[in-house]
Design a protein around this nucleic acid. Structure first.
Length: 314
DNA sequence: AATGCGGGGGA
DNA sequence: TCCCCAGCATT
């Protein structure tokens, strides 16, 4: 397996005592995790042999900050209803938001519909495979573009999600958890770990994510079942504790705008028609409710009729 | 670099 | 209860 950085030189791998790259170790890491994936991979519908690039893209957007178990049933229903970008492009926003259900962050659903329309308009209804074309689509950032390239097209891509960040933080850097926010150093390390060929790179992307999801988990890692336990820098140094534990602040939930917005959206999703503001009073205090309603309208998640009632956009 | 943005299930 | 989950867009 060959691996070079952009300048054709060996890139330094943090965590190695000498500061020099330890390519034998990196190659073993990549090869073993990839081999492990071959038998340990979950049987997920968007990985099926008959998968489509559109199905992969839809799954990736749904999986942005939402666990697999909650996405799976919604994805199945969604793909049955809107099997192509063209189908979703024609769907009413209200139906899109209802189908999205309680996955959370409903703005993702709006962007996914916008994405479908952009694919129809710019790419003749076919999901593009190019990095730049993918990144230009609504709701598609660096991670999702790479994931679609790797998983839908089998192309080389740097795919760094929360799982990959944690796996490389432990196995290579030797720390309990990555920093709260994604750093340039992490990205450089991730780039240096990606094998050169399309097939190897795509396999590494899937395998490293899966290892983080099933074995190298945030809460209770199952090191006894880890294929790289003997070369894990975190384990070899005695499992040092999380350095920035003190900075991880549990984001409050009770009483937040997010909670109120969520309640309003839940009410609008289940309502048959326009809803009077008075019927939304349960969602939160008056001034907060007004602010949230205005925000939802601003975001395109809600509309008002001539009587000032609220509803999902047509 | 920091924020805002949902919701739920397991530890 | 707390914590985390296949992030993105905006500032």
């Amino acid at each position: 397996m060959v691996r070079t950085d952009r300048r054709g030189r060996r890139a330094a791998v943090p965590g190695s005592r000498s500061g020099q790259a330890q390519w034998a170790t990196v190659d073993a890491l990549v090869e073993r995790v990839t081999a492990w994936f071959a038998h340990a991979a979950r049987d997920l519908p968007w990985r099926a042999a008959d998968r489509t690039p559109w199905g992969v893209l839809v799954s990736e957007v749904m999986l942005q900050q939402t666990p697999v178990v909650r996405v799976e049933p919604v994805w199945r229903a969604w793909m049955e209803r809107w099997p192509t970008p063209a189908a979703l492009a024609d769907a009413p926003t209200s139906e899109v938001l209802r189908a999205w259900g309680r996955l959370g962050y409903p703005r993702r659903a709006l962007r996914l519909a916008d994405c479908a329309r952009a694919i129809v308009a710019r790419h003749d209804g076919e999901v593009p495979s190019g990095e730049e074309a993918l990144r230009a689509l609504p709701g598609i950032g660096e991670y999702t573009a790479g994931a679609v390239r790797a998983f839908a097209f089998g192309r080389r891509a740097v795919v760094v999600d929360t799982n990959v960040r944690r796996v490389q933080a432990r196995a290579v850097t030797g720390v309990a958890l990555p920093a709260p926010s994604y750093t340039a150093a992490e990205r450089r390390l991730a780039v240096s770990l990606v094998p050169d060929g399309d097939e190897d790179a795509a396999a590494w992307a899937a395998a490293s994510m899966e290892l983080g999801a099933l074995v190298c988990t945030a809460r209770t890692p199952r090191c006894d079942r880890c294929p790289v336990q003997d070369l894990c820098a975190w384990r070899l140094t005695g499992f040092p504790p999380d350095e920035h534990a003190h900075r991880r602040r549990t984001q409050s939930w009770d009483g937040t705008d997010r909670q109120v917005r969520g309640r309003v959206m839940a009410a609008l999703r289940t309502a048959d028609g326009p809803v009077h503001r008075a019927l939304l009073a349960d969602a939160g205090p008056e001034s907060q409710l007004d602010r949230c309603l205005a925000g939802l309208v601003e975001d395109g998640l809600a509309e008002t009729d001539e009587a000032g009632r609220f509803m999902l956009p047509a």
